[in-house]
Design a protein around this nucleic acid. Structure first.
Length: 647
DNA sequence: GAGGCATCAGCGTA
DNA sequence: CTACGCTGATGCCT
């Protein structure tokens, strides 16, 4: 059952997962930049003398994203690079609405800045926002990522609070509440509108809430589908569209991934749409030939809204016309054409859909199911890089193998909930064991990282549908083990993965602590060793702090090392193919569910952030101790924050 | 019982 | 200040 031998005979041995022959990566300080305390309500909060609160963006001319980075100029070439525009753009781009120096106020945007400061002061006072603990950073990608992580941490926390309440009064929209808190604290990326790409946001990035698009500067309106701004052109100012969100509600179906037919805004079943606001802006964009950011949506049953937003890059408005809607009133239509030679965005989704419908359509498949039917869903094994026919063989198991029976001197807490455990239930023993709340939200999302999670077990009276039985049910993700270009085999998903989603367990056999310098240990590249939690995993919990609430326990000690080593050399599951990353998208979490021995918790992986399909999954292998330096390997993760080595 | 429709609070921006 | 919108959650209706 668990143990079925994989019958892949590799042509050669497993390619080194961590080759040592390549360029030395630059070192960066482990743990990233310094932390800055921002005291929103203190007298110095708005003082320019303080270091700017996060995110702090590059402001040097060569680093500052230029406003005219969106063309390929067309007929009006050179229009958008008027110097006045650039200066204004950079001022806005600099990002610190709150902390910027006085020089900014001499520019055209001064009154706006002052106004928002005033608003901020008022709002923060009423909200009583406490110190925000945020790092400063230079990399726009990382800035956007931290903003989104902070948003989701706060959102999850608010949702948890909400779900624990008996009455359903209060804020039913934790997404808006969390977004508002971040906005008023200036915790956002790419503040100020711009044309062209949003630095730090890449094509294919996915979002689960409209407010997330606002936070990273992709699309400002919280509801509206068309965002626009007045920009200077060679022959004067003009108001052009900067981004559109295609939510699919107007049924813009179109087979071609490079074409988007977009309906205008306004009007309804009884009123014509007018050529104003967004509609007018799209019309002006057509005439100016400027690029417009496009966010498309895809159906996804795994999230409550059933919809995911995908950034699909730049498009140009090619054509516009008017049609009569169902009830006979005018609707504007715009044909947008995708800028050539951009990485795949929505096209990847369409490809994957084909593969799911017909696995035969997926080329270069070595095995249609690496797990031989043991996993809930088949695991593709593919190689699109070279001729290697697969990893060296191993036994595919979905459970951990223990060397000896575990001590169960202390029975695992068990609850007597009739059907399902509820977060606010003070009588639920499992709620109690987890520190007063359930670790997962109703949607099956990890709320915050904990030293140890107690899921409901066999002795609990609740049903298998209880939300506190998540990881024990196994993975629900369509995986693909694939050959990377330089790191041996890797793991990725065909499905989009929302932040906090359970990914899989690290299975294998428990190996007892071996003596240092043991040769066997050096050979085993498939050891999971619980080193201290990495920087990003620790930051994952920051949510309550943004509201001035006491933080959850984030000390490294409680997440620290564990005398637990799991080897997946001979047996394991997909997680044995997960490579190390210094900017990982996966974290691990200890979980107990089938026994009570805290020395041997299950190691469960969860998504740190939203992970688009076909993105390699990585977690931080951790820093090995100095005495294990011989086990360190050169890192090829390619992250700007790469530490260079890991152990 | 799934899915369509109406309703409503809520947000940043013009 | 107010109005607007390709939200998102909920409840009621087929």
């Amino acid at each position: 059952m668990d143990s079925e031998l994989l019958d892949v005979q590799p042509l050669r041995t497993l390619a080194p997962m961590f080759p040592s022959s390549s360029v030395v990566e630059t070192f960066s300080v482990p743990g990233g930049g310094p932390f800055i305390y921002v005291r929103p309500s203190g007298p110095n909060f708005l003082s320019p003398a303080l270091p700017p609160p996060f995110p702090s963006f590059p402001t040097t001319p060569q680093q500052a994203p230029s406003i005219d980075n969106h063309h390929e100029p067309v007929a009006m070439s050179g229009h958008a690079s008027a110097s006045g525009r650039q200066v204004k753009g950079r001022m806005r781009v600099s990002g610190h609405k709150i902390g910027t120096s006085g020089t900014d106020t001499s520019s055209a945007g001064s009154s706006k800045v002052k106004q928002s400061r005033k608003q901020l002061q008022q709002r923060t006072r009423t909200h009583g926002i406490g110190p925000a603990l945020v790092p400063s950073c230079q990399d726009p990608r990382e800035s956007a990522e931290i903003v989104l992580m902070a948003f989701d941490a706060l959102r999850r926390w608010l949702l948890q609070q909400e779900e624990a309440k008996e009455g359903k009064d209060g804020n039913r929209r934790p997404d808006l509440k969390a977004g508002n808190v971040l906005m008023t604290n200036g915790l956002r990326a790419n503040m100020g509108k711009r044309m062209g790409p949003a630095p730090g946001v890449e094509i294919g990035d996915i979002f689960y809430f409209r407010i997330e698009l606002c936070l990273v500067g992709l699309h400002a309106p919280t509801m509206g589908g068309i965002d626009y701004m007045t920009s200077r052109f060679g022959d004067g100012d003009d108001t052009v569209a900067v981004s559109v969100v295609s939510a699919g509600v107007y049924e813009n179906e179109e087979g071609d991934a490079d074409v988007l037919i977009y309906s205008g805004q306004g009007g309804n079943s009884y009123v014509d749409q007018k050529l104003e606001k967004g509609n007018l802006a799209l019309e002006r964009s057509l005439h100016r030939g400027v690029y417009v950011r496009v966010v498309r949506s895809a159906k996804d049953c795994s999230c409550p809204t059933g919809k995911i937003y995908i950034y699909d890059g730049l498009y140009k408005v090619e054509e516009s016309w008017v049609v009569k809607g169902k009830t006979g009133y005018n609707v504007f239509k715009y044909k947008l054409l995708r800028k050539p030679e951009q990485p795949d965005g929505i096209a990847t989704w369409k490809k994957i859909q084909k593969w799911k419908d017909n696995p035969g359509a997926r080329g270069r498949i070595i095995l249609p199911d690496l797990s031989s039917g043991i996993e809930n869903l088949p695991v593709f094994l593919v190689n699109e890089v070279d001729d290697e026919k697969g990893p060296s063989h191993f036994e595919y198991v979905t459970k951990v193998k223990y060397p000896r029976p575990l001590s169960s001197h202390k029975p695992l807490e068990c609850c007597r909930c009739p059907t399902a455990c509820l977060p606010g239930d003070a009588d639920c023993a499992c709620v109690h064991a987890n520190g007063g709340n359930l670790p997962y939200s109703s949607g099956g999302i990890l709320v915050s990282r904990k030293p140890l999670i107690y899921e409901c077990g066999a002795s609990c009276s609740c049903s298998t549908n209880c939300r506190n039985r998540l990881t024990q049910k196994g993975t629900a993700i369509r995986f693909e083990v694939f050959k990377t270009t330089n790191k041996g085999w890797g793991l990725r998903s065909l499905d989009p993965i929302r932040a906090g989603t359970f990914i899989c367990e690290y299975t294998g056999e428990i190996v007892e602590e071996v003596g240092l310098g043991n040769d066997d240990a050096e050979e085993d590249h498939y050891i999971f060793q619980a080193a201290g939690a990495d920087d990003k995993a620790l930051k994952w919990n920051y949510g309550p702090e943004l509201l001035g609430e006491p933080s959850v326990d984030n000390s490294s000690e409680s997440f620290g090392s564990l005398a637990l080593r799991i080897s997946a050399k001979k047996m394991g599951n997909v997680s044995r193919f997960m490579n190390h990353g210094c900017s990982p998208n996966v974290l691990w979490q200890r979980v107990l569910h089938d026994h009570s021995d805290e020395g041997y918790p299950h190691v469960m992986f969860f998504a740190i952030k939203h992970i688009p399909p076909m993105t390699e999954l990585t977690y931080d292998y951790g820093l090995s101790g100095g005495d294990r330096s011989h086990m360190e390997k050169q890192c090829l993760c390619g992250s700007p924050k790469c530490r260079g080595r890991f152990g």
